[in-house]
Amino acid sequence: MNGDYQVFRPRSEDIYDWSGGQLHPEIRQHVGVGNVVRVQVSENGSADTGWSDTPYVLVTGQGGDRLTGIVDDPYRSQYSALDNGTVIEFDRADCTEIPLDWPENEALAPRATHTGQGREITGYIEPD
């Protein structure tokens, strides 16, 4: 799948670092061009088929709360819905993870604060 996708909107509190530490949601407002974030997309553009892919995306453009990015995920496989190089658009509120210890997020990391909560598995978030 490389054109027909739907981006998942998590609950505002569902934003994590690469290790599963929960971040305060305000960090999304600081995401900009050059940062890497994770979003969750559905297969075949329908939530009914499941939220099956969680690519990392390099942000390449922004207009208000709307971001444009290129799927740039070192963990892509033959089972991934979106190939590396796929351009997608999403809202800041759609970000589910910010890997703060990745070089692209070095300047963003000092702005992040943790809630003290976390999760064992990063990536997929079960929809309500």
Rank of each mutant, 00 (worst) to 15 (best):
V87L: 04
E89T: 11
H114K: 13
L82K: 15
R76L: 02
T54N: 10
T96P: 12
N84V: 05
L108P: 13
H114M: 10
T86H: 02
Y75H: 14
W51A: 07
G50T: 14
V57D: 09
G64M: 05
L100T: 12
L108R: 07
S52N: 13
I98V: 15
A107T: 13
D73S: 04
G118R: 14
V59F: 03
E106N: 06
G61I: 04
S77I: 01
L100Q: 12
W102R: 14
A107V: 10
Q117H: 12
G61T: 11
I121K: 15
H114E: 05
W51N: 09
D73F: 02
N84Y: 00
P110D: 04
P74W: 06
G69I: 05
I88T: 04
G63Y: 03
V87K: 08
L67H: 11
T86N: 01
T96G: 01
L82T: 11
D91Q: 12
L58Y: 00
G118A: 06
Y75T: 15
I88R: 07
A109C: 06
D83Y: 01
T68M: 07
D91Y: 04
P55S: 11
T60P: 15
T68Y: 14
C95D: 03
A93Y: 01
D94C: 11
T96I: 15
P110Y: 06
Q78W: 10
L58H: 09
G116A: 04
R119C: 09
L58S: 09
E106R: 13
G61S: 14
